[in-house]
Amino acid sequence: MSVSSGAAHGRRPPVTRPRTGRTPPRAVAAAGVVLVVLTFLVICPLLVADPDRADFAGLLAGPSAGHPLGTDQLGRDLLARLVHGGRLTIGLSLFAVLVTGAAGVSVGMAAAATGAFGRVVMRFVDVLAAIPVVLFGLVAAVALGPGAASLLVAVTAIAWTPFARQAYLLTLAERDREYVTAAVSLGAGPVRVLAGHVGRNVLPPLAAHACVRFASTLLTVSGLSFLGLGVQPPTAEWGAMVAEGREYLFTAPHVVLVPSVAVVLTAGTALWCGRRWERAGAR
């Protein structure tokens, strides 16, 4: 492979990769990590104990054979809560990213294809993008009452705007390239050109963007739950778990530590994948 021949020459061989190129092995590895995490979250909830069962004999206990990550202030198994909470946190974030991604990319690409009208639309998108998501979390919590539903509204209502802006810029850059002219002159309609030809070229960078959006959505979901504006106790959710354990920060730091580490690791991995993917595409 190119890697071994490169090592023989002592530097990277001057191979010109196709611009939209193949996905490099490291990105595949990163995607593998994500896949493992997801399987973990789907399968493990079936294996671990009930996340809501209280064991009053061992409150705030450290790791033991029965409770590998210890227990919280009600004696609930932290591993079980971590896994169940993760399913909720990651599931909500993933769903929100898929929805906002589909909506945002459609708006952005359509706006880039329609000229002056699209520019006006994007003007409003720019304005919406400046509104903090937490604000929507607050308003949604008043309107719907705090819970998973208000959380979902908060992380979808305006979170599609970054996707729209990114898709708009990428589509604009592709719009005047030769292959588009070729497709148009061969009689392809606007939808076919956008979805089939341009879409192929703008989707890889957008996928990298989606990783970054996933990380920030995850942080918003857990942040709002931390504030009591999202998932309500006793339901396990990473941010809510941090909030519940905060009182015992000095006596039993593991209660806060477990969900905190989970949030940081998941968000960090997603960001890392996104960056890898982005650099692979830019090369």
């Binding site: 990380a215 942040g223 968000a267």
Partner: peptide, 14 residues
């Protein structure tokens, strides 16, 4: 920079 983004405020502040 990854750490700066990935560590949420509710973790960093405590």
């Amino acid at each position: 920079t990854i750490a700066g983004v990935a560590v949420p405020e509710f973790v960093l502040a405590p």
